[in-house]
Design a protein around this nucleic acid. Structure first.
Lengths: 239, 239
DNA sequence: CCCACTTCGGGAACACTGTTCGCGAACACT
DNA sequence: AGTGTTCGCGAACAGTGTTCCCGAAGTGGG
């Protein structure tokens, strides 16, 4: 018998010794820690230390580290500012994606978490409801809409992850906070081998493609919105 | 100063005591272990035990657990059977996606890994080369093609992850191997809270959508190929 | 007022984890 | 036989998530 989801577990009755902290406080502390030093810093002892308590006490509010991570996801999802779902669906969905990307850049640990654990808490449900409201007049079958929601989330998270990874490469400067937040990986990872493969030859199209890349620092926010719009149009037809 | 990528590190010279194992053997053992009991089972001691050696010996072949995970990804990517890139690009790309999904269902730990670490080893480079070859005559800018490659990977992995998660839910039967391979998460996760949110009301579009879902067990392979084709068409224009 | 009863806090312990050190063994070459 | 270099790996270290269990801190009943 496994546990009920985190979000509908017993909340404190009036009886017994009153709790000195709350699940929200624990979640908030975990998020601060993750923003500061990355997901690896979110250890039970670490979070407890930041709250000035013992590690074992956390298990009064959270049934384990996994639960805490789920709570972190949904807590950040509270940051969406969802306007009333009016107007055509495409701009509405792109706006959702824009906000999602912003949240992920603000919390560099989020993409990895969202991609890995397909959980929906209260705020996630609100978000899904909003997306479905935007698509209310769309003729596609409900299953197609859910697929679109899933693909949209995956695309956004993957895009943000790449952006964050790219920010690690410059030697110093703006990427420092991000580098601190994702300390596990060495710098310059993804293409480290790419360069060697090109030099070794045998991959003509690859060399051609990389040579033809304009190193102009395009606004990656614009790129993202363009990609997302294209993907959604492909899935749900032209607006 | 961080390390050079795993794939171009010093291989054994003829001098000194000969190695009793190889990087390939270590990688293979790790993959077997992951196929059997999930990623959590891939611990240094675990892998070493399966090879009948001590844990510390592995560090002669691999510079750490992270390297090992990277090697696992690329080793599985050796399983692609890439036909000569002829014909229109859309079917070619969908075929690549088809194979990717098959590999991920055969190795349930792969999606999570691919989504989380954007690494490209030798076989990953070959795959990218193949995709670019398929798109050689396509007029899009190289950067757009790389974006399409990335989105394609993310979509495929996310789709496979959802499929694997869904396979956990039935009480018994075919999902057992998968359940063993991803033991960390409780069963029936993603929608566990969804049901409650619906019952509580306040999410009309959600309830409507879930009610309108046909529970027909559609061939999810077909669904995947359809989604992928739509996404790619959206990104790269109609074939 | 005191005594159940229930809940919370958290030190200590357990079973692990990844990783490093250092030493002895095993080979090739001179 | 000696030297240089590599490999194998037991032991140790610092850290992890989680459970036990006991004392503290409250509330409600007699």
């Amino acid at each position: 018998m496994d546990q009920a989801p985190v979000w509908l577990r017993r909340r404190s009755t009036g009886v017994g010794r009153p709790a000195e902290r709350s699940q929200e406080e624990v979640t908030a502390a975990a998020i601060e820690l993750a923003d500061l030093d990355g997901l690896v810093a979110v250890s039970m002892r670490g979070v407890a230390g930041r709250l000035g308590t013992g590690a074992a006490s956390l298990y009064r509010y959270v049934s384990g580290r996994d639960d805490l991570l789920d709570l972190m996801i949904d807590e950040v999802a509270a940051g969406y500012e969802l306007p009333p779902p009016t107007g055509p669906w495409l701009p509405g969905l792109v706006e959702v994606g824009r906000q999602a990307r912003a949240l992920m850049l603000r919390h560099p640990w989020l993409p990895e978490l969202v991609l890995t654990r397909p959980v929906i808490g209260p705020h996630g449900v609100d978000l899904l409801e909003h997306v479905l409201a935007l698509l209310a007049d769309h003729p596609a079958a409900p299953a197609r809409k859910l697929e679109a929601f899933a693909v949209m989330n995956a695309t956004t998270a993957a895009f943000a992850l790449n952006e964050l990874g790219a920010a690690e490469r410059p030697a110093h400067g703006a990427g420092d906070a991000v580098r601190a937040a994702r300390p596990a990986r060495a710098a310059g990872r993804p293409d480290a081998y790419l360069a060697h493969a090109m030099a070794a030859g045998g991959h003509p199209h690859l060399t051609a493609a990389l040579a033809g890349m304009t190193p102009t620092a395009v606004n990656s926010g614009d790129r993202f919105e363009s990609v997302l719009a294209d993907v959604l149009t492909g899935l749900l037809g032209p607006a």
